[in-house]
Design a protein around this nucleic acid. Structure first.
Lengths: 198, 198
DNA sequence: GCATTATTTTAATCTTGATTAGAATTTTTG
DNA sequence: CAAAAATTCTAATCAAGATTAAAATAATGC
């Protein structure tokens, strides 16, 4: 029974585990979720998880890496779209929000990055930084090409990405709300960027 | 040596502890900070903390309660100002941001609310809910009084408060940045609210 | 069907850091 | 200054949950 074209059962299970873990971390908090909690959700025993991850630290790391990668990809797709700065910013937000409330499943809030071991922490921070810088560039481009009003790109980026990153705090999977978020967030978050006059 | 007009040494120390704990939690993550870490920062021993808080859970709870109260107060002051909806929203944001980057000291990011014990969790959630509802009312008032453009107040509130709540993730005390945040955030976050025409 | 490999379980053990008891010290009060 | 109260420390203990080893089960290739 093939799971997917090329994904092995191993990779498939690992991914399920990451999603279950992300869900637990977001819902029960990091210190509130034991490996047993994660395992139970999958009908497994805690020890079985060690077949897929080295330890809890790596489980968290993988969750965060997944979250960071999803964000990065959202940005990448937006920048490849070829629109002007405003359009790219809008598209990025739309893409990322889609991921946060969509079928990609729960995306872990990165609360415990500081307690990762240095190598892991640095990798996450590196991806995150690339992500933020990418967005700031999009904003700068928009200012240059006249599609975005002049603003402090660093702060504007922080504000917008904060709003997105916070979503899992209050969004708990209700599809009706998901739709609402998708419809309003990109607009709400970009309304302030629009250049009023030429 | 009186510490302040009426605050006892006990209350004073307790407050120092809460701030040190908040700083640790934000910087090192929750699971990354031991009571010894918090204590060391104050030149104390971990056991000494138990004179001020029942246990670690209560320490976290108190940090969160402080954070929630500071937010609530920011909202309260804004609503007492008597301005129109837009002005109140702006003022709230300004007040809250001021707290996040100002002398009130580090405000704990509420990552571990779910792992608090039920009574504590419920109290934090209750204050938070009151806070969000308050903001949504301000937005609604603004729409009604014509100072704010029509929008989904729930989502707009979530977006703006997410941006604010995320600040401690990237702000680490640099006074120059604090000034920047103060100058740009209220504007960035409200620019989208303005009603364009009458 | 048999041998091999992959996956999961059971049943410990191990570690870390929270917690406590009681002693020591400092501060306050009269 | 002496007694009482407040605060902190030293030195264990404790608990929870992470981790491991080895056995059991399931899947796969031949």
């Amino acid at each position: 029974m093939a799971i997917a074209a090329d994904a092995t059962r191993f990779q498939f299970q690992r991914d399920r585990i990451l999603r279950a873990a992300a869900a637990c971390f977001n819902q029960k908090g990091y210190s509130g979720t034991s490996l047993k909690d994660v395992a139970r959700q999958l009908g497994l025993t805690d020890a079985a998880l060690y077949y897929y991850v080295k330890n809890k630290e790596e489980l968290v790391y993988q969750c965060y890496l997944r979250a960071a990668e999803l964000g990065r990809r959202a940005m990448e797709r937006a920048r490849e779209s070829g629109g002007n700065g405003f359009e790219q910013a809008f598209l990025y937000i739309r893409n990322h929000v889609e991921i946060m409330v969509g079928d990609a499943g729960p995306v872990a809030i990165m609360s415990e990055v500081p307690s990762l071991k240095p190598a892991h922490r640095n990798e996450i921070l590196s991806v995150s930084r690339r992500h933020s810088l990418g967005f700031e560039q999009v904003l700068s481009n928009g200012i240059r090409d006249g599609s975005i009003a002049d603003c402090d790109v660093r702060m504007t980026g922080n504000a917008i990405m904060g709003a997105i990153n916070w979503i899992p705090k209050w969004f708990h999977g209700d599809p009706a709300v998901a739709m609402q978020v998708l419809e309003t967030f990109p607009d709400v978050l970009t309304r302030g960027l629009r250049k009023v006059s030429g």
